[in-house]
Amino acid sequence: MSCENIEPEVLEKMENIVVFMCNECGQGSANTAGVARMAYNPAIRIVRVQCTGQIGPIQIMDALSNGADAVACVGCCLGACHFFNGNVLSMHRIKLLKKVFKELGYSDQFVNQYTSRAAEGETAVGDFEDIVIRLATAIREEGTIKDGC
């Protein structure tokens, strides 16, 4: 599955995808991707935070209730968190949140956690593509979160 195969009507439904990127590898990889002019979906919006460990359910739910179609956290690679283990903490939180989403009857593909490497823009772009692909699957199956699925 790649981004090119996604139907235009599904792509159209993706207006705002909020990505929380940590100040270190997350930001770094998105900057590297920018410098290398690697195109990705313009619905992707990046919020700079100190560490993905800073992002909790509050921020994610705030984003979704204010119009975001999907939320993702992008942190450093496992073992490379600049604050020791924020990425792992975030991963646990997202995992729990996915369960909550399922319990509530939503697709668990609306929230995801990724890692990236500051030196490689591909990692960030790959993460973004994966967000879009997962969101497309969710939209095809259940509709957007705004539709109430």
Partner: peptide, 11 residues
């Protein structure tokens, strides 16, 4: 963060 998120998520 909420204020930023509101604007960025299209609110």
């Amino acid at each position: 963060l909420l204020d930023e998120i509101i604007a960025i998520s299209g609110g």
